[in-house]
């Protein structure tokens, strides 16, 4: 998977872009729960797949964008589908693979059409009633934001460590990869923590 696709919001003015983030999350939630059932009904999976392609169109994205979201999964899906066609029949294969593609594609569509801050704002708003339980919604939002920020940061460190490892021809050792990755991440966390303090997070 290309890390640059993480949290990659593409601004636009389509109906999908304008839909409130809360609704998008709700749809995602319903699809997630429904996927347990749709795995058994291949027709529903296929219909949802068509609806998903339609949603991408409505958001102003072509099939190419959809494919880019699903591409990291093609090997896994293809493999699972082949096994299922052989063992339990093609209907189940369409049902299972189809619902996975739908979920991944719709989750990606939410990310593509919603600024991450809008998603986090929604979570913060949903968490507001929990304030009496000692949940600070603002703090929760901050956790999510910094988490979203750190994923590409650490992925980039991983790439650098990997390059250094290849340059030193220590290409096979997992430990030679993970130890420097974790140590550099800890140092990065120190710098980031200091920046958070300087920007008034603890105040």
């Amino acid at each position: 998977m290309r890390t640059s696709s993480l949290g990659l919001f593409r601004p636009g003015d389509s109906p999908v872009h304008r839909m409130p983030a809360g609704w998008k999350l709700l749809i995602l939630l319903v699809l997630g729960v429904a996927s347990v059932l749709t795995q058994h009904w291949w027709g529903v999976s296929a219909a949802l797949l068509v609806a998903t392609i339609g949603s991408y169109r409505a958001a102003g994205f072509g099939v190419g964008v959809l494919w880019a979201q699903v591409r990291p999964l093609w090997f896994l899906l293809g493999f699972t589908a082949v096994v299922q066609v052989i063992t339990v029949g093609w209907q189940r294969a369409v049902g299972v693979s189809g619902s996975i593609v739908v979920l991944v594609a719709v989750a990606a569509l939410v990310t593509l059409t919603t600024p991450t801050s809008a998603l986090v704002d929604t979570v913060v708003r949903l968490a507001r009633p929990l304030a009496p339980l000692h949940v600070d919604p603002e703090r929760l939002g901050l956790f999510l934001m910094v988490g979203v920020r750190c994923v590409p940061l650490v992925a980039d460190l991983a790439r650098q460590v990997r390059e250094a490892q290849i340059a030193r021809r220590a290409t096979t050792s997992t430990r030679a990869f993970v130890v420097p990755l974790v140590v550099r991440s800890l140092r990065e966390a120190d710098a980031l923590g200091e920046a958070l303090v300087a920007r008034g997070v603890d105040d």
């Binding site: 650490v154 992925a155 991440s185 966390a189 923590g193």
Partner: peptide
């Protein structure tokens, strides 16, 4: 804040 940074970075390590 400093703990938030460490926590977020380790979430990201699991992701990586």
């Amino acid at each position: 804040a400093r703990d938030i940074a460490v926590i977020a970075v380790f979430a990201a390590i699991t992701a990586a």
